[in-house]
């Protein structure tokens, strides 16, 4: 059986993925702010370093897969969004590389289908992807209020997918696949917070999800995303690398039909 590590495995998509892996008999190390095998607030740099050190100790023999799932939505403060969704995701996944290389494993990073929608703040993306400056990114996003915080969320999710694509060739050539998944509107605590926020509720409720059209249930379920993730990290997907898979019921296809 395999040895896996996941961030954000306590709730939402991460919890559903962890559960499926455990049901298959795998060992899963969960790194999360609450209820983890390694407990850490990954938005804080020092906590991140401690979590990495603990992971290196617990997975000294190597990892079959590392899944970066921890993230927050656009209702959270902008600086926290930047730190957790991009810098923590990148730093922990990078730290997992030598562990993955030991076993010829693979990595999967959770992005979002909102990453490529209209309104992307390309300056934020450049600060993250090109300047790699966490302090500057946090400063830029700190003052955002209300709906404007979507820029931080969208930017961070675009940036992490871009990072995956950028390093995917090098990693695969060294025996470690890496991919990203871009879930659509999925009923998780992150979405619930958005639905409860007057700035985001209408937008989230009216996102077109073709597979849910005419159904009582407007949103996707974490288990549906987790099933896609299980495929992506499985040997059956051994030719997938640098892929951003839209697991969104068709939202991206109907809103960005002509661009892919």
């Amino acid at each position: 059986m395999g040895f896996y590590a996941i961030t954000g495995g306590t709730t939402g998509i991460g919890a559903a993925t962890r559960k499926l892996l455990q049901e298959q008999g795998h060992t899963v190390i969960n790194i999360d702010i609450k209820g983890g095998d390694i407990t850490a607030d990954l938005a804080i740099k020092a906590e991140r370093q401690r979590a990495i050190a603990e992971l290196q100790q617990k997975a000294a023999e190597g990892l079959d897969c590392f899944i970066s799932c921890a993230g927050v939505g656009p209702t959270e403060p902008g600086d926290r969004i930047m730190s957790l969704n991009y810098f923590a995701a990148k730093e922990l996944t990078e730290a997992a590389f030598p562990l993955l290389a030991k076993k010829g494993g693979n990595a999967l990073v959770v992005s979002s289908n909102s990453a490529n929608m209209a309104g992307l703040n390309t300056e934020f993306v450049a600060i993250m992807c090109d300047e790699d400056d966490e302090a500057k990114a946090c400063q830029a996003a700190k003052g955002l209020e209300g709906l404007a915080k979507q820029q931080a969320y969208q930017g961070s999710k675009f940036a992490i997918a871009k990072w995956v694509r950028r390093i995917s060739g090098k990693w695969a050539a060294r025996g470690v696949r890496i991919n990203a998944i871009a879930p659509g509107a999925t009923m998780t605590p992150l979405l619930e917070k958005g639905l409860a926020d007057p700035n985001f509720t209408t937008g989230m409720r009216t996102y077109p999800i073709p597979t849910q059209y005419g159904k009582a249930d407007n949103f996707l379920k974490p288990e549906q995303i987790a099933q896609c993730m299980l495929f992506m990290i499985s040997p059956a997907a051994d030719c997938l690398n640098g892929t951003v898979l839209y697991a969104d019921g068709g939202t991206d296809a109907v809103l960005r039909t002509e661009r892919f």
Binding site: T202, G203, R205, T206, P208, P210, Y213, G214, V254, L255
Partner: peptide, 13 residues
């Protein structure tokens, strides 16, 4: 159906 879905998003927002 897609006209309905997409314009529901536009008109609502």
């Amino acid at each position: 159906e897609c006209v309905d879905m997409i314009f529901n998003m536009y008109f609502s927002n």
